[in-house]
Amino acid sequence: MNPLGTGVPGAPQNVPTLRIAALQMVSTPRVDENLAAAARLIGDAVAQGAELVALPEYFAIMGMSDGDKVKVREVDGRGPIQDFLAARAREYQIWLIGGSLPLWTDHPDKMLNSSLVYDPHGERVARYDKIHLFGFRQGGECYDESATIEAGRQPIAFTTPFGRVGLSICYDLRFPELYRALGVTDLLVLPAAFTETTGRAHWEILLRARAIENQCYVLAVAQGGRHENGRETHGNSMLIDPWGTILDRKLKGPGIVIGDLEHARLAEVRSSLPALKHRVM
C-alpha cells in the first residue's frame, strides 16, 4: 500500500461538491447492538443526501475494559464488523469510513486500532492503523492505550472523485506533523473517543487549527456521552471548513453532523491566503 495514498493519485477532482456526514454514537459493550445503531444512523444520513459517511472510533464496541476490544479483534479482510461496513457501503452506494475497529496483530494481548474505508461498490480502498497511542493520568482518570494496542507506522490518504482524503484517529489530532506528512488534502477525517476532560479543554481548538493550517475541511466524528463502563466521552462532532469555520456540530448523544464540501470554497481560501504554497519545510 502506498503510505501516502490509495486509489488513483492525482485523479481529477470532477465532483464540485460532496455531501458528507459524521455519525456520533454512544457505543456499548455489545457489537451487535452497536452495528444496529450504526446501521440506523447510516440510513438516516443517506436519507439526508450524504455521499460520504464516517463512524466514530470504537463504533462497534466500547467494552467494560480495554481487553474486551482485543477479544473481538478481526483478521484483516474478514469478520462481522468488516462485513457490515462493506455491505452498508454497497447497499447505499456511499463512501464509508469505519471509524475504528480492532484488527488482529501477532501479539496475543494486543490489537491494531484501524480505520477502514469502503467505496460505493463495497470494496475496501484504504486502511489506517492509529499511530499515536493515548496516555493520560489525572486524579482518578488513567489511560494507557499502549497496554492493549500496537501502534501503526504509516500515514494514509486516499483519492476520491471529490479529492484527497487524509485519515487519522483521536490522539493523532495532537500531532500536526502527521497531517503535514499527508501532503495536500481536501478533507481530513478524524474518528475519536476523546475523554470529556481532554475534549473540553482542547478538542475544538485542535480541530480548527488542523483545518486552518492545512486549508482543508475537517470532519470530526466522536463518541459522545456516558458509556456503560463509566467513561464519559466528549462528543462535539463537527464539520469545519478550510477557514476554520464550524459548519455543523452535535454536542452530546447519538446523532448526525452533515454538510457540503465545496471545491469553490477550498479554492477561495487557498487563493486568498496561499499558505500551502508558502511552506518551506
Rank of each mutant, 00 (worst) to 15 (best):
Q24V: 10
R270Q: 11
A38G: 10
L101E: 04
R200A: 13
P9N: 09
T6E: 12
R174S: 12
F158N: 07
L133F: 08
L133D: 10
L266A: 01
M281P: 05
C142I: 15
F162D: 09
V31H: 04
P29Q: 03
R249F: 09
E150L: 14
N14M: 07
A60D: 03
P29A: 09
D66Y: 10
G224N: 02
G230F: 13
K277N: 09
V257Q: 07
S271W: 07
L85Y: 11
A22L: 10
R90W: 01
L206V: 06
V257Y: 00
R88Y: 09
H227Q: 02
V26R: 00
D129P: 00
C142E: 13
A151T: 07
L207A: 04
I97E: 02
D44L: 10
P274I: 04
R210M: 13
I256M: 07
L167T: 03
F134A: 06
F84M: 07
Y92I: 05
D106K: 10
G163F: 07
I246G: 02
D76L: 12
D44Q: 15
P3N: 14
G98M: 03
T197R: 12
P108I: 02
C216T: 13
W104T: 06
W243F: 15
E57Q: 12
W95T: 08
D186H: 09
D32A: 11
D241M: 05
G163K: 01
L85G: 11
L188P: 01
A45P: 01
A192D: 08
L101R: 08
A147H: 10
L35P: 04
E145S: 09
G166T: 11
T105Q: 05
V70W: 00
I156H: 00
G166S: 13
G98L: 00
Y217D: 05
R40E: 10
V70G: 05
A86Q: 05
H121N: 14
Q93T: 06
V280T: 15
R88G: 03
S272T: 15
M25W: 00
P176F: 01
G259L: 04
W243V: 08
S271L: 15
L23I: 12
H132T: 14
W243A: 15
A157V: 01
C142T: 15
E196G: 05
L266N: 00
I42S: 01
A37Y: 00
G49H: 03
N214D: 11
I20E: 00
S27A: 14
Q48I: 02
R19H: 04
S114M: 02
P9K: 11
E262A: 13
G43D: 08
E268Y: 06
V53Q: 06
L85F: 14
Q48Y: 04
L167R: 00
T17I: 01
Q48D: 07
G259C: 13
D144T: 11
P80K: 12
E213T: 12
E204P: 08
G10Y: 11
P108E: 02
P56G: 05
K250S: 09
R88T: 06
S146T: 15
P242L: 02
M1C: 10
K71P: 04
M238G: 00
D83E: 13
M64C: 06
C142Y: 14
A60P: 01
D241K: 10
F162A: 08
V70Q: 07
L187V: 09
S146G: 09
G152S: 14
Y217I: 08
L112D: 01
P254H: 08
A36Q: 13
P191N: 09
R153I: 15
A36I: 04
L207K: 03
P3A: 14
D66H: 11
V184K: 05
